[in-house]
Design a protein around this nucleic acid. Structure first.
Lengths: 342, 342
DNA sequence: TTGTATGCGTTATCAG
DNA sequence: CTGATAACGCATACAA
C-alpha cells in the first residue's frame, strides 16, 4: 500500500514550497492561481493533513475531556449527541470519564489528564460541589473549562445552563391552567442550584396566580437518584396530604416517585398530577408518560464544545449562556379533580 | 509557566542519552542502575511523555472510532461505560458517531475517518446490514474492526456477542417454571441474527419442556424501535389470543409493548407475563419492572477495545467471543393464571 | 507573495 | 548495554 501523501508530496506536484501549502491549508495569504492549483492537486492526491503532526507543532492534543457524574442516565446521553456532532465537525476527539466508574468516587483520572496535559479543554457535565477542586485545578493549569448545568457558578469557566427559574414559572402556569390549587414540590439536594431555581420559579409563578406554596409543601430528596424518590414517595403517601399535583426536582426523581405511586395503586393523573424536569427519553417509556420541562441538551452540548474551542483558538468568549426550557405535556398531568391522596 | 519537561530534559538530568530514556519508557533493555536513576528523575520532574509525539512517529492516531446506529437508547450507554473504562487505561481517545445524527442515515463521517486515517480502529455497535459497506471499507483500509452484537457475521472482524440461543433457553425455562403453557414470541427485524437466535433458543427450551411454539405464535415488529411494538401491541390485543406470556425481541420493544398494554388496561403479569432482552436501565424505571435477559455490556465494551488494541499492537487475536446472558427477574413475569387476553 | 530553515517530542536503526 | 542520528508531518519566523 502506497504511503499516504504529505504536504511535501503536494508541494512537489504543484511546484511550490511546502510552506505555501501549509499557508493554503490554514487560509493564509496565497495567490489566486496557486490556490487553484493546490486545490486541484490536493483533490487529485486525495490528500488530507495529519492531525497528529499538526497537533504536535501547535502544542495541542486534539482531544477534549468530558467528565460527568455518571454516564448512566439519559441526561448525559442527550448531551453526548451534541458533543459528538460538534467535535466531529471540529475534528477533535474525546476522552470520557464518569467519576463513579468503579462504584466509588474517584477523580484521579481527571487529575491525570490535567497533569499529563492530555486534553485541550474540559467539559464538566452537571458538576457537584465536591468536583470543585478538580475544576480549579484545570483552570489553574490553564485548561479551558466549560460547565453544563453546574451545581454552582465558578469563575473563569464557561457556564452553559438553562433558565430554570422561567422553567419553574412555566410549570406553575401549566398546573394553574389545569385548575390545581394545592401543589407540592420535592427537590433533589437542597443546595442544588437547579433545584433552588426551579423551586423559586414555581413559587413565583404560583404566587402570581394566587396559589401559595409554603414551606409545609416543600421537601427534598437529598440526591438526584431515583431510589431517593422512591423512599420519599413511600413516606409521602403514608400521611394524607391535600395536594392535587406534585412538582419533582428532575425526571429521574419524578419517575422513581411515579413508579412507587403506581405500585401503591395511585392513579396518575386522576389522583395526582406529576411534573418533572429535563425531559429524558424515559418520560416516553412510562405509562402514563411524564410531563416535563425540556432542556435543549443537544444544543447545550454543542455550545459547550464551541466555547472550549473558541478559547483554545484565542477567540475570547463571554462567560455565561442560558437556554430557555420548553414544556412537554404528557399524560402525567391532568385537570385537578378531587383532593389526593386521601 | 515553565515548559513541561521532555525526554531530553530527563536524559540530561540523568546523564544519559535520550534514546536510553525512550528505551526505559518502552520497557526495553536498560541496566538496573540506570533504570533506578531514571525512575527518580522522572518522578522529580513530574515528567510524562507526549502522546502526540509518540503517535506521530508510530504512525498512530491515538484514537479509535465508535460507530453506532443511535447514541440514544440505553443499550449504547452501558456499552460506553465499558469503552470508557478501557480506553482511559490505554490512554486512547474516542471519536463517536451515530449514523442517524441529522435524523437521516449518513455514514459519510465514518468514510471520512477511514479515508483520512483519523482512527486506529473501529468499533461498530449493533450494526445493521446496511452498514456492511462501511465495515468492508474499513477492513480494506487495514483498520482493525470490532463488532458488538452485529446483525450478521463479518470476516476479518473481531466479533463480540452474547449467546442469545442459551438466553432464549433460559427464558423458556423461567416461563415454564412459572407454569406457562402458551407462549408467544415477537421479534425485531425478521433477519436479525439476535432475534433469530433468541427465538431458536426459546423454541428449543420450550420444546424440551413439552411446550410448542408454532408459527401462529411467532411474529415480528420489523424494527427494534419502541414505536413498532406499540403498533404491534395494538393489534395483538385486538384479537383474542390464548397466551399467558409473551417474549419480546428486546427491551425497547418490550417496553413499548407494555406501555400500550397498560394503556389498554391489561394487567401485567396477572393477565400477561412479558419478557425482554438486554436489561437496559429502563427496565427498572417502569412499573411493573420488566423481566429481562441481561447482556454484560460493560464487559463486552471493554473486550472490544482490548481486541482492537491487540490487533494494533500486532498481537493476534482469535476472532469471536461469546458472553453468557443472565436472567433478571422483575415484576413483569408471574405465575400463569387465566388465559389472556380475553 | 513565496521559499528556506528550524523545531515540535518521540522512536528506531545502527554503531560503539 | 548505550549513544548518536534520522525520521514522523506540519507550521512559523525570517529572508528573498
Amino acid at each position: 500500500m502506497a504511503r499516504r501523501p504529505t504536504i511535501l508530496t503536494v508541494a512537489e506536484k504543484a511546484g511550490v514550497a511546502p510552506s505555501t501549502v501549509s499557508r493554503y491549508l490554514n487560509e493564509h495569504y496565497v495567490s489566486k492561481e496557486v490556490r487553484k492549483r493546490l486545490a486541484e492537486v490536493i483533490k487529485d492526491l486525495g490528500y488530507s493533513r495529519s492531525a497528529t503532526a499538526r497537533n504536535l507543532v501547535l502544542q495541542r492534543k486534539g482531544c477534549i475531556g468530558v467528565m460527568v457524574d455518571s454516564t448512566e442516565g439519559s441526561w448525559f446521553n442527550q448531551l453526548l449527541t451534541g458533543l459528538e456532532e460538534e467535535l466531529t465537525n471540529l475534528d477533535t476527539s474525546l476522552m470520557l470519564t464518569s467519576l463513579e466508574l468503579a462504584g466509588r468516587y474517584d477523580p484521579a483520572i481527571v487529575y491525570k489528564w490535567i497533569h499529563e496535559q492530555r486534553i485541550d479543554g474540559l467539559i464538566v457535565a452537571k458538576s457537584q460541589r465536591r468536583e470543585r477542586p478538580i475544576v480549579q485545578a484545570a483552570i489553574e493549569a490553564g485548561i479551558p473549562v466549560a460547565m453544563i448545568g453546574p451545581f454552582e457558578t465558578v469563575e473563569h469557566a464557561q457556564i452553559v445552563r438553562c433558565n430554570n427559574i422561567d422553567g419553574g414559572v412555566t410549570v406553575a402556569n401549566h398546573l394553574a391552567d389545569l385548575g390545581h390549587k394545592r401543589v407540592a414540590f420535592v427537590g433533589g439536594p437542597r443546595q442544588s442550584i437547579d433545584t433552588r431555581h426551579r423551586l423559586r420559579g414555581l413559587q413565583e409563578g404560583l404566587s402570581a396566580r394566587g396559589i401559595p406554596l409554603n414551606n409545609g409543601l416543600i421537601s427534598y430528596c437529598g440526591s438526584y437518584e431515583a431510589q431517593a424518590a422512591r423512599s420519599y414517595a413511600e413516606e409521602f403517601f403514608r400521611r394524607p396530604r391535600k395536594v392535587t399535583a406534585i412538582v419533582v426536582g428532575n425526571d429521574a426523581l419524578a419517575l422513581g416517585f411515579m413508579r412507587r405511586a403506581l405500585f401503591l395503586g395511585i392513579r396518575i393523573p386522576q389522583d395526582l398530577s406529576v411534573v418533572g424536569f429535563d425531559n429524558i427519553p424515559e418520560c416516553d417509556v412510562m405509562w402514563p408518560g411524564l410531563t416535563s420541562m425540556a432542556q435543549p441538551m443537544r444544543e447545550m452540548g454543542r455550545e459547550a464544545c464551541r466555547r472550549i474551542l473558541d478559547v483554545i483558538d484565542g477567540r475570547n468568549q463571554s462567560q455565561n449562556i442560558e437556554y430557555p426550557m420548553t414544556l412537554v405535556v404528557r399524560e402525567s398531568t391532568g385537570p385537578a379533580a378531587g383532593v389526593s391522596p386521601e
